[in-house]
Design a protein around this nucleic acid. Structure first.
Lengths: 220, 220
DNA sequence: ACCTGAACACCGTTCAAGT
DNA sequence: ACCTGAACACCGTTCAAGT
């Protein structure tokens, strides 16, 4: 009874790049980026993997498009103060990546250049300009502000198959038991290396980067 | 003629964790980390993939062991001056990752804790102590010094299947043509965002981080 | 104890053949 | 122009059966 089965489900929508990326974002949010494969996504769209290649060059480009789409959710709202504004924007960006660990792990090699990424960079540049940071220092600094936020999210986004708690414990133990002879400085500061909460460290890192950017002139 | 063929090649050496990691490093250096799969490595060792699981928990652990082994090559030799020492050690570390792009891409999520990693951290802590950087700031700072070096190497280590030149050109073009209305700061500083050579930027980044670490007290 | 082949459940990408 | 099935060349991991 093809007529009936046709009425049971809406007609298969035509493939478009838009629709493919939409489905990819939904699949990423429900199953993680590692499940957003050409084959799995095609299955979701009720077609074959080969069909997607009309709209998407390869799996990498698909993943980059997902990140681009998600960056729309970063909160760029103005803050009372430029330094506070930097903290807020970068925390919003980091939170987004933390909420999508599998994406975070790929974000460093996915170099987005869509409108949402541009808006993010523009906002950060504006905030640094408001803080009277010299132009070139600000431009170079923005890269490292975003890179640190991305890398921190990526580091904390451990594969679901790995035991993050166990790995952390292992590192703590290794540091705590480091021999004073072989590793004198490590031995002395083992506790400091693992001190602070993740959010204390992130906040400190942003301040540290801002201070460094302000204090360090670029060559020529 | 089994006797002959046995003499043609040396007897198949017994499997050991050591031997497996050795072979993995060789394979990584010749074909890239993406080729260091359980199956491909097993083939290299003239056995089946399943045999490796006696010595290695999984593919991730194997990759981490490779990184650990490679960190032995980082140059930790003393420098005339603590700041210069930091520059040298971090450049040596970054050069190592640059020389192995596929490893660089994975290095951020591979959290090594072998003796070579400990020696690297110990050396960085010692250099910061020589610079009279307060203990906790130094301990937190070391993480970001290594993270930035790793992330920079990872960013520049584009997949061989992708066209790094084309992607860079694309980003440059996007920045250069950013509308002054939508992205006022970006439009104004487009040139600054892509200025400087990679090594100028890396050197600046290390200075910037050192200055930030010195200038930023940790909470409590 | 260690090693193996075979199996399970997957990948990205290409391409000739269809509509 | 777009879509498809099938193929090619791969993956990680498990497990029963052997030595």
């Amino acid at each position: 009874m093809p007529a009936l089965s046709r009425r049971e489900r809406p007609a298969k929508p035509a493939l478009t790049r838009e629709g493919i990326v939409d489905a990819a974002v939904r699949l990423m949010e429900s199953e993680g980026l590692q499940r957003v494969t050409m084959r799995r996504l095609a299955q979701e769209l009720d077609t074959g993997a080969a069909s997607l290649y009309v709209y998407v060059a390869n799996a990498y480009e698909l993943h980059a498009a997902i990140l681009d789409r998600l960056l729309a959710r970063v909160d760029l709202a103005p803050a009372p103060d430029w330094r506070e504004g930097l903290h807020r924007v970068l925390r919003s960006y980091a939170d987004l990546l933390f909420a999508h660990p599998s994406l975070a792990r790929s974000a460093l090699s996915l170099r987005p250049n869509g409108p949402n990424y541009l808006a993010l960079v523009d906002t950060l540049l504006g905030l640094l300009a408001a803080g009277r940071v010299p132009a070139v220092q600000a431009a170079w600094g923005v890269d490292y502000l975003l890179q640190t936020a991305t890398a921190t999210a990526a580091e904390h986004a451990v594969d679901t198959k790995r035991d993050a708690e166990a790995e952390w414990q292992q590192l703590s133990d290794t540091l705590a038991s480091a021999s004073a002879d072989d590793y004198p400085h490590l031995h002395q500061r083992a506790a400091d290396l693992v001190s602070g909460t993740p959010s204390e460290r992130s906040y400190w890192a942003v301040d540290m980067l801002i201070n460094g950017i302000i204090a360090t002139p670029t060559p020529h």
